[in-house]
Design a protein around this nucleic acid. Structure first.
Lengths: 155, 155
DNA sequence: CCAACATGGATGACGCGTCATTCATTCCTC
DNA sequence: GAGGAATGAATGACGCGTCATCCATGTTGG
């Protein structure tokens, strides 16, 4: 590349539209979830994964890979969730370095209470806003961008 | 609504795909911009708006509306940018309550240096990943969701 | 065996974002 | 023109995210 290639008007419009959508949709979902249940989207994701795990417990590194979070972000977040009683940390017998994150009863109650409203919000603001065919389209486009991100990271 | 309606598999897949794309694309763009120029995406947006404004200055509330940020977020962010010498605050003669945010020379240099690389990154990871027709499609879908968000907020 | 390296995880510092609050000025209405 | 509402803006507290660093345990090759 020699001279930087700018975006043309259509590309610019599309990019800005995506940016605004992305930021507002996330903010709105977070706001509703927080107001309805006291959970953040991040809390929600952690709890979903723990709920799906056998015995409601996972090694932090498993959780980390499932969430695609940075390790230290997860660690900090678990500390805060632990303080709020949503999860506990336990020692891991098989690996002296390791640990377990365990869903508490309070954590299970919280995600159970929060899920229906959150799903409803996703449906209202995303699924129903787009309609069936376009949901699938957006999924495909996302996958394309993801593939490019993988290529950029891996290559 | 009586029983919560969950998402079916296709919807679930599309939604998760979008979520991952959104989070990783933002992270990657931020990472590159930060590494190349020391600016965050937020800094970048502020500077772009100031650059486009006559005399490189705006009232905070104008900036706020253009960026669709919360007022206090903008105020905090401007304080940090001011500390780094990217912008300055000036008094506003016409309105005793108000202020001006002014682009400094350092701020102008920073955005000028950062822009080509950032545009290039957006092109590589978004525009080129999708191709012309699909960029437009994603723009349209974003606009649909935005319309729903407006309806949800305004109505 | 043990030294080097890899892995699992926690932590402190610091920038970011939100909420609630505060303050000054301006606008509006009576 | 005086008092209340609205507006423009800053701030402190606190939760979140990243980076750099640290520590303990595990693993591996000589």
């Amino acid at each position: 590349m020699t001279v930087p290639r700018w975006l043309d008007d259509d590309q610019q419009r599309a990019w800005r539209s995506y940016l605004r959508m992305q930021s507002r949709l996330g903010a709105e979902l977070n706001r509703r979830l927080q107001a309805a249940s006291g959970l953040s989207l991040a809390d929600y994701d952690v709890l979903v994964h723990l709920t799906d795990a056998p015995e409601g417990r996972l090694r932090p590194y498993e959780l980390q890979r499932a969430l695609e979070w940075e390790q230290s972000r997860l660690s900090h977040h678990l500390s805060r969730m632990q303080r709020r009683g949503l999860v506990e940390r336990r020692e891991c017998a098989e690996d002296g370095r390791g640990a377990f994150v365990v869903l508490t009863e309070a954590g299970r109650r919280a995600i159970t209470a929060a899920a229906p409203g959150h799903v409803q919000a996703v449906r209202e603001l995303f699924v129903d806003a787009l309609g069936p065919g376009q949901v699938e389209t957006l999924g495909r486009l996302s996958a394309r961008v993801l593939a490019r991100l993988d290529a950029a990271a891996g290559g």
